[in-house]
Design a protein around this nucleic acid. Sequence first.
DNA 1: CCCGATGTTCAACGTTTATTGAACTATCGA
DNA 2: TCGATAGTTCAATAAACGTTGAACATCGGG
Lengths: 123, 123
Amino acid sequence: MSRTPPHPTREQIELPMVLDCLSDPIRLTIVYQLAQQERVSGELCCGDFNGLAGKSNLAYHFAKLRECGLMQTRVAGTNRFVRLRREDLDARFPGLLDAVIASAAKDADRLRLLPECEVVEAE
Amino acid sequence: MSRTPPHPTREQIELPMVLDCLSDPIRLTIVYQLAQQERVSGELCCGDFNGLAGKSNLAYHFAKLRECGLMQTRVAGTNRFVRLRREDLDARFPGLLDAVIASAAKDADRLRLLPECEVVEAE
DNA sequence: CCCGATGTTCAACGTTTATTGAACTATCGA
DNA sequence: TCGATAGTTCAATAAACGTTGAACATCGGG
């Protein structure tokens, strides 16, 4: 569990898998928030997403994002840091990631991927 | 069965649904071939895709593509013509469709969405 | 008016998916 | 060394998905 998990090579990244990965609201939110972070460190810790779902569910989504080549995991002590594989994705599918992120930003309210995600409970 | 089936309005088109729709190889192929057709009539007849899958299976994929807002169906006699909802998609998600199509074109051989799709049968 | 062609609808099926909680592993700090 | 923390793995479940074939509806041409 301590070693860095396997990632696909750049050439192994497949378009349908990437699109399928991005089609899930939780994963799209993760990607979107990682994209926001690109201007800073580019990295976020797994725990930073704990608000989105339960921990085991998040681990499932992280694995999918990693296996399809969308993001990269770095192990640091008891933490794991994730980041977008921006260079590989831009090389494989130029403009795709930016278009998806821009589209997500446009619909941020609709997708509920805003910083503060208030869940309104109707009775 | 004769009347034009329901389509979502432009504003009803949702990003995750569009991405999910595009993540299926058969649907991606349909979209890709419709995009090729944009320089000509922009339309193709349902039957033009009969090589991709069985007819009932195609009807299923057509329905998904229509319901997510990716394409439009026009009834003409006993035929049905489909086309990309280019304007609506570009308005909703600028650059997305083009990026996806360009990515698909880049991987056309890998995705087997070339005009002649030879299926190599290993014993 | 029927026949053939075009496509859809329906029920059935096996597979994949997302989600959960419990158990587990690994690391850091006191 | 012990305990708390971070995150993964596993088994179980329910829902959604893609594929199939048979039945159906509609239109155009003889």
